[in-house]
Amino acid sequence: MKKLKIGFYGITGCAGCQLSVIFEEDELLDIINLIEIQAWPFIKELNYDKKFDYIFMEGLVADNEDKGILLKLRANTRFMVALGACAHTGCIPAYRHFTLKENYAHLLYEKKENIKDIDPNPIDSFVKVDYIIPGCPPDKNEIRSFIKDIVRDIIPKPYNNPVCVECKRNNNSCLLDNKKPCLGPITRGGCNSVCTNNGLECWGCRGPTQQGHKMQS
């Protein structure tokens, strides 16, 4: 069977999502055997950037250069996967939208046209995105099962339950009851409620769930 041609790329971001792929530890060597990694500039010197089956794109579009890379890669792949919260929702770097310009005016300087800032936005504001692996960073199991699905020609199913489902299963006491502003009920789960397990309220990094969790009255 012919192996799928895969590319891992990052535009503006923290590299944490690509790192989550490398941090598969026990399974990494098996995973890379299942696929043909054509390009991964993060850890590869030789990168062939044409005719991909899947591109996993980390990061958001923050300047013209990001946009150029994204558009070019979209034209060279059958499927585009938003890897992680920045690519999916814009995540924390997109807070710039809610930040007064005067707050970061002292950090601005003149940039050449090719790297000029543009409004920070997730990749689906610029190109068609076929799949999303949400989370800041994504859950390692989710990345692994996504790759295993696509190599077996199975369409990966998104997890749509709110965070509360896993949180309850993990026997956590409800943070809302403790008057903490937890976004678990309206946030897409699949993260094994990793933040609330540790007592931190969910801040919605995985984006809204399509079926909001009804609060019991």
């Binding site: 503006t12 250069e65 990001d66 770097p93 930040t99 970061y104």
Partner: peptide, 10 residues
Amino acid sequence: VEGSRYFEGI
């Protein structure tokens, strides 16, 4: 060269 994120402003 990397995209600016302006964390100190955010």
